[in-house]
Design a protein around this nucleic acid. Sequence first.
DNA 1: GGGTGCATGTAATGGGTTACATGATTCT
DNA 2: AGAATCATGTAACCCATTACATGCACCC
Lengths: 202, 202
Amino acid sequence: MKRVTPKSDGGTTQKALLGLLSLGSMSGYDIRALISWSIGHFWSESYGQIYPALKRLAALGLVEKKTERTKGRPDRHVYSLTRQGQVQLKEWLRLSPVAEVQRNELLLKLFFGRHTGVDVSRAHVLALVVTQQSALRVYEAIGKRLRREKKNDPSLPYWLMTLSYGRHRSEALLQWAKETLRVLERMERGEVWRKERGDAHK
Amino acid sequence: MKRVTPKSDGGTTQKALLGLLSLGSMSGYDIRALISWSIGHFWSESYGQIYPALKRLAALGLVEKKTERTKGRPDRHVYSLTRQGQVQLKEWLRLSPVAEVQRNELLLKLFFGRHTGVDVSRAHVLALVVTQQSALRVYEAIGKRLRREKKNDPSLPYWLMTLSYGRHRSEALLQWAKETLRVLERMERGEVWRKERGDAHK
DNA sequence: GGGTGCATGTAATGGGTTACATGATTCT
DNA sequence: AGAATCATGTAACCCATTACATGCACCC
């Protein structure tokens, strides 16, 4: 049986691109570059998504394409929002965000941690510490850049909110990691202790 | 050109199923039910994944299928880990977890919040408050159940760690939401103030 | 009589990454 | 000489959800 509802609103990728183009006209390549230091800490798109999506958006009349000829390099295809695109973007922004599906491989491995023992779990948790510390440094760098280069942009407070989200989250995860490492250590000592009395290894 | 490396290790779904089956033999239906109150807060699988994956695992010899006839109901297909399956699971557990791609629609909408104004952003943040508060209640309920029913299970500490992760995360997000709501309010007042002097609306 | 739970599975559809393909320019 | 950057795009594949398909039992 065929699906009746067309359904396909094109997905969030298209909406994200509309949003980015609302900051200024850009090529697919530019978009990728912009993502990395603006929304890269909570959103990602690959070329395999970006280029086809831009084409579809153009076909829908939500963006407009202009080709800039350059010497040597391939032509730059610069896209800009149309009025329709602006409207669509605003409509989408009002809808409440759909809850994302959580899939946390670290927690999955930790959950089954008994099969490997304390040291493997500890290594996984320590890896999280490293990534979150580096995430915090990234947030700081982006924050500085924003406050310097976008001092008078009316969007600045919104951008800082997303950074703050990342900071809160990372700091909480670091706190959790600290506690978890303590627990793992206690477990290790407990295991040794039990082992000496001969009732370890199930 | 054909891909040379077979690549397909079957993905994490299969590994998650191996893990769950390490807790006891189960049917696909049981697995879905178990997920919801054990790893449901950080992992999800749909039937459309579970049934085909179990079939593949059986073909690989990592699980064994036994059919239980029941009256009235369809046959129950109960799967259990084979020795090979246990080995595979342990091997996978040792590998460091791959970082998951973040895709946070709330932050995306907040990032472009200027296009809609303060009240829309506020609504989105308030929705987050609701979901995180309910998440906290879920964690509490699961914690109680675990401490009651799995008092002597050697895996208990690992399971509690994953719960604690959720708690830390949710509490941090609530904290962030509180701060963000304050910022939004300040912005609103700022906007009004400016509006009265006639330089609002970009 | 109708909803919910038990119980299995497949097909259509959608979303997304990675590898491939191309090729000039600029920096080291 | 070789790597990195600019710049575009497609094809293959993988992963995942949702809807469909089926049907009995039990409770209200």
